[in-house]
């Protein structure tokens, strides 16, 4: 049993879970989206470790990059609305 590799796996997995929890429990939409982008990038890293480099590439470009850009763009366009929502 390769202990070093297992510790690395464990560390990656726990970080992934922690990021997901942080993204899901964030109340500020912009913060949540940025945490989600980080989560997607780390997920791409994990998939590269699981010998799926093509998926890692797609996830980094589409899952993290494009989804994040979509959500952030929409957040910018709806910014006044979210400010009023936060102050409610």
């Amino acid at each position: 049993m390769n202990l070093f590799l297992f510790c690395f796996d464990l560390l990656l997995s726990l970080t992934l879970l922690a990021l997901a929890v942080a993204a899901l429990s964030s109340r500020d939409p912009r913060r949540g989206v940025i945490l989600f982008i980080t989560f997607g990038l780390l997920l791409a890293l994990v998939w590269a470790r699981l010998r799926a480099p093509d998926l890692a590439l797609t996830e980094a470009a589409i899952g993290a990059g494009l989804t994040g850009a979509l959500m952030l763009g929409a957040a910018r366009r709806a910014a006044p609305r979210f400010d009023s929502e936060d102050s409610r």
Partner: peptide, 17 residues
């Protein structure tokens, strides 16, 4: 090798974004 239509399409999409 790793690559193909989806990754290439994603790159074009990224350029447009």
């Amino acid at each position: 090798a790793p690559g193909g239509a989806f990754q290439a399409g994603a790159m074009l999409g990224a350029a447009g974004v």
